[in-house]
Simulated assay, not measured.
Amino acid sequence: MALLHVLLRFQCSVLLLWLQLASAQLPNTGSGAIAKPECQDRCGNVSIPYPFGIGDGCFLGEMFEIKCNNSEPRYGKLNVTDIAVLDGQMTVATFIASTCSDQETFPTYFRSGKLTVSNTKNKFISIGCDTWAYINSSPWIGEGCSDCSKNEVTTDGSCDGMGCCETSIPPGITEYNVTVQRDPSKNLSFNPCNYAFVGEKSSFRFSSSYLQDFKNYGSGRVPVVLDWTVGYVPCKEAARNVTTYACGPNTVCTTGNNFAPGYLCKCETGFAGNPYFNLTTGGYCQGT
């Protein structure tokens, strides 16, 4: 009986090992598929889900191409840190405009092509005392920070005008310049540099220490959330062309975020998967 028990355990172990090996050899077409079959699904530590892709035949149209340079995903000249298929959003790392008492002003320029800067996920933020910052875009946006000649007036977590200001941005922006200026007559030891940037509001929490140094004196980067859509026409018109319509089976077509032209695809209620996959690629929306 003991020998039989050992044999059964051995057979179960062999069967389990065979199943694991077999599943590892299956193509990437299951409900958890990220990229198209035979396509790279990661660059560095960032997942690259379809309709985006790396390499010929792996993305849906030119505007969804991602380049992987030294394990760093790039969308054009933008550094990509996250792609959310179901939300129709991409997060990129952008530069910070800065000016210091002993240095020249460093403005920043941003251009995202068809992608639009999310007006619901981002804010225009400036840091520093006696600061004037503005975005040269359409429409033009400007803001100033209140005087904080004493470090004690600033409050951690508060961006209400004392050392830190934030304002909403309008929908539809695809490119802008950010410039920040400071009062040249004041040289505050606790606030050597001033900064301004468009950034993801949920990832930023003001600290009074930022008056002394923010992101290595402005040389670092901050996350910005972009909205993307498929094509340039609304759902009803897009669905008429079955050869270019991007939504797979068991999906619904919705309007894009941020009033952007084009459309997004989502799984129907009770289904899960990548709504841009079809029966050929696998990984499409399937019943849960």
Rank of each mutant, 00 (worst) to 15 (best):
H5T: 06
S13T: 10
A22Q: 15
G30S: 14
Q40Y: 05
N45M: 08
G57N: 09
E65M: 07
N69E: 15
K77L: 12
V80C: 06
I83V: 07
L86T: 13
Q89M: 07
T94H: 09
A97Q: 06
F106G: 08
F110H: 05
F110I: 05
S118Y: 01
T120N: 12
K121A: 13
I125F: 00
C129K: 01
A133V: 12
A133E: 05
N136P: 00
P139H: 10
G142Q: 15
G144M: 14
D147Q: 11
S149V: 11
K150Q: 13
T155F: 03
G157M: 04
D160T: 14
C164G: 06
E175N: 13
V178Q: 03
D183T: 13
P184E: 11
N187P: 07
F190T: 03
N194T: 13
N194P: 00
V198P: 01
G199V: 09
K201F: 15
K201Q: 15
F204I: 10
F204N: 09
S207H: 10
S208H: 03
S209M: 00
F214H: 02
F214K: 00
Y217M: 11
V225C: 02
L226P: 00
T229L: 04
P234Y: 06
P234C: 11
C235D: 11
K236E: 12
A238K: 02
R240Q: 11
R240H: 06
V242D: 07
Y245E: 08
G256A: 13
N258Q: 15
A260R: 03
P261I: 00
L264C: 05
C265R: 01
C265W: 01
F271L: 02
N278M: 06
L279T: 12
G282Q: 08
C285V: 11
T288S: 06
